[in-house]
Simulated assay, not measured.
Amino acid sequence: MLHSVKAKRVDVMWKLYSDMLECGIVGDVDTIGYLVQAFCMENNAAKGHELLLQILEAGRVPSNSVFNKLISAFCKSGNYAKVSALLHTMIAKNCSPDIHTYQEVIHGLCKRRMRHEALRIFNNLKDRGYFPDQVMYTTIIHGLCKMKWLGDARKFWFEMIQKGIIPNEHTYNALINGLWRTGNIEEAEKLYKNMCEIGYGETTVSYNMMINGLCSNGKLDVARVLFDQMTEKGIAPDIITYNSLIQGFCKKGKIPEGTYLFDQLLKQGLQPSTASYTCVN
Score class of each variant (00 low, 15 high):
218 G>W: 01
108 G>H: 07
92 A>C: 04
63 S>L: 08
81 A>V: 13
16 L>N: 08
73 A>C: 07
231 T>L: 14
54 Q>W: 02
216 S>L: 14
56 L>T: 04
210 M>D: 00
88 H>T: 09
216 S>G: 15
44 N>T: 07
102 Y>L: 07
229 Q>R: 15
274 T>Y: 11
13 M>W: 03
271 Q>I: 14
45 A>L: 01
188 A>K: 04
241 T>F: 03
45 A>D: 01
104 E>I: 01
59 G>M: 03
163 K>R: 15
78 G>K: 11
4 S>C: 15
38 A>F: 01
130 Y>P: 00
144 L>H: 06
249 F>M: 01
120 R>W: 04
120 R>M: 11
116 H>R: 13
131 F>Y: 05
212 N>A: 12
47 K>C: 03
97 P>D: 06
3 H>F: 07
60 R>C: 09
67 F>N: 03
55 I>K: 05
61 V>N: 01
18 S>M: 04
120 R>A: 15
72 S>I: 02
101 T>V: 10
11 D>A: 13
251 K>N: 13
104 E>N: 14
10 V>R: 05
250 C>M: 03
268 Q>F: 08
43 N>K: 15
280 V>L: 05
147 M>W: 08
9 R>I: 00
71 I>Y: 02
235 I>Q: 11
61 V>W: 01
15 K>C: 00
202 E>L: 14
19 D>E: 15
185 I>L: 15
76 K>D: 13
117 E>C: 08
75 C>L: 06
248 G>N: 06
160 M>S: 11
9 R>S: 13
231 T>F: 02
97 P>A: 09
37 Q>I: 15
79 N>S: 14
135 V>E: 07
89 T>N: 00
129 G>I: 04
164 G>C: 11
152 D>F: 14
179 L>D: 02
56 L>E: 03
215 C>F: 00
5 V>N: 03
37 Q>L: 09
100 H>G: 00
229 Q>C: 12
174 A>D: 07
67 F>L: 03
41 M>E: 09
265 L>R: 03
145 C>E: 07
230 M>K: 05
199 G>H: 08
187 E>S: 10
143 G>A: 12
103 Q>K: 13
69 K>D: 09
246 I>C: 05
225 V>T: 12
10 V>I: 15
198 I>L: 14
132 P>V: 09
260 Y>V: 06
160 M>H: 10
33 G>H: 00
252 K>N: 13
239 I>L: 07
185 I>Q: 06
90 M>E: 00
226 L>G: 12
22 E>C: 05
107 H>M: 11
119 L>S: 03
253 G>V: 06
262 F>V: 05
219 K>A: 04
80 Y>G: 03
72 S>G: 04
121 I>M: 13
79 N>K: 15
111 K>F: 10
184 N>H: 14
191 L>H: 06
77 S>E: 10
198 I>F: 05
83 V>E: 02
228 D>C: 14
252 K>T: 09
69 K>P: 00
95 C>T: 08
57 E>C: 04
182 T>Y: 06
219 K>E: 11
216 S>D: 14
133 D>Y: 10
91 I>E: 10
236 A>V: 13
190 K>P: 00
241 T>M: 10
231 T>C: 11
87 L>D: 00
136 M>S: 15
226 L>N: 07
174 A>P: 05
202 E>D: 13
182 T>N: 08
95 C>A: 11
47 K>T: 11
69 K>F: 09
